[in-house]
Amino acid sequence: MTIKNLKFMPKFFDRYINQVDEDVELIQGLLDTKNDYSLIKDDLQIKENYRYEPDKWTPKQILQHVIDNERIQSYRALAISRGDQSIQPGYDEQLYVNNCNDRTLESLLAEFKIVRESSIILFSSINEIQMLKEGVCFKVRITPLALGFQIIGHGTHHLRIIKERYINKPSY
Rank of each mutant, 00 (worst) to 15 (best):
L78H: 14
C137L: 12
I46F: 06
I40G: 06
P170M: 07
I126D: 03
I151E: 10
K60W: 07
T104N: 00
F149A: 12
N127V: 02
M1F: 07
M1P: 13
Y172T: 01
E48H: 07
R82Q: 12
N168R: 08
G90R: 03
Q150L: 15
T104R: 01
G90W: 07
Q88I: 15
E134N: 08
K60G: 06
L122A: 09
Y52G: 00
Y91M: 11
N101S: 11
L39H: 15
I46R: 11
S118R: 05
E117I: 04
E134V: 13
K7Y: 05
N127R: 08
G83T: 02
K4F: 09
I62Y: 11
I72S: 02
K133R: 15
F112L: 02
D42G: 09
Y16C: 10
D84M: 09
Q61V: 05
S119K: 01
S86D: 07
R51G: 03
Y166V: 01
T2G: 14
P59I: 13
G83E: 05
L31C: 08
I87W: 06
E111R: 06
Q19E: 12
V97H: 04
L122C: 04
N49L: 14
L6C: 13
D92Q: 03
F112P: 00
L63F: 05
M9R: 15
L108H: 07
F8I: 04
H154F: 00
L147W: 14
R116I: 02
K113R: 09
C100G: 09
I17M: 04
S74W: 10
A146F: 11
N5R: 10
N35H: 08
I72L: 08
K56Y: 06
H157G: 04
E111Q: 10
L132Q: 15
K169T: 02
I67G: 07
K41F: 06
R165Q: 08
M1E: 06
P10F: 13
P54L: 08
L132F: 10
I40L: 06
I142P: 01
F12G: 00
D23I: 00
D21A: 11
N98E: 11
H157C: 06
D68I: 15
H154G: 02
V140A: 02
E164T: 13
Q19C: 09
P54N: 12
P144S: 08
I152E: 10
F123I: 03
L26G: 04
D21T: 03
